[in-house]
Design a protein around this nucleic acid. Structure first.
Lengths: 138, 138
DNA sequence: TGCAGATCGTTCGTACACAAATGGATTGTG
DNA sequence: CACAATCCATTTGTGTACGAACGATCTGCA
């Protein structure tokens, strides 16, 4: 009992970061052409339809500065395009290009594989349990 | 049944990132003077004792390029110091300074609060279950 | 109507994260 | 003993993250 029973290895933050790292490596092994954030933005755009840049950021949990960089790179890759919103001159309207929709359609099955492979060490009931527990920590 | 049942919001990678974001915000609210990585490196150093820079990186799940930046910033803050390892000229010996040890001793209780607060929405048994499930995905 | 307060996108600065390349030091094996 | 394979630290380049500050625009409410 000298007072210090803290062990970094079992702290939730540290474990979370390591699991994230493993997921990232599985992601980039399966999808090399886009990063997870770029894919998330493109997916949300194709799932939900076009939106303003900041709204897309909120939908994908990225702040204004971050989503800007992501959109810039997606634009450079010709997967999305932007135009000023005529109804609100502050807004930047973002929509997928044809190539963007095709890319998403092609990558979506791989994204499922990524989720599957990340959870592979767990039984189906355990996967559900994990997702449900994590969902309460958001 | 048009073929696409992918939903970004319930994918493990996306949820993991969001939980991580929440944890980060809890962390910086409780510990403003260090980032999670800087604290992890300092903690490991104080827990396990001095080591080489790369070894510390492995112990804290940071690659060589990342741990270098973290150590540089800890050095700038006077919390660690480095010296060439006489036994192996490739190695950079890293150890906490007195201020580093004091800082760790002062921050360790806060780190416990951070873990506690992150897991706060879960009951004790659920916390154990979550840590155990996550541990299998590392 | 008018203006205070909110929202939008942008920029700057700091801090990870990792791949790839480099050059020096060490080790295992023949 | 030599030397190829390995390990160490560093640098460069790209891509998140987020806080803070900025100017332009919009909205609610007095």
């Amino acid at each position: 009992m000298n007072g210090s029973d803290y062990r970094l290895d079992v702290q939730i933050g540290f474990v979370l970061r390591r699991v994230n790292q493993r997921h990232l490596s599985i992601f980039s092994k399966n999808i090399a052409e886009l990063t997870p954030r770029q894919f998330a933005a493109l997916a949300k755009l194709c799932e939900t339809g076009p939106s303003s840049q900041n709204a897309l950021g909120r939908a994908t949990a990225m702040d204004a500065a971050t989503i800007k960089g992501v959109i810039d790179r997606l634009k450079r890759a010709n997967l999305v395009e932007t135009s000023p919103d005529p109804g609100d001159l502050r807004r930047l309207f973002v929509e997928p290009t044809t190539a963007g929709r095709e890319t998403y359609a092609r990558l979506e099955p791989l994204a499922k594989v990524i989720s599957e492979e990340t959870l592979e060490p767990l039984a189906p009931a355990e996967r559900k349990a994990l997702l449900s527990l994590l969902g309460r920590l958001v």
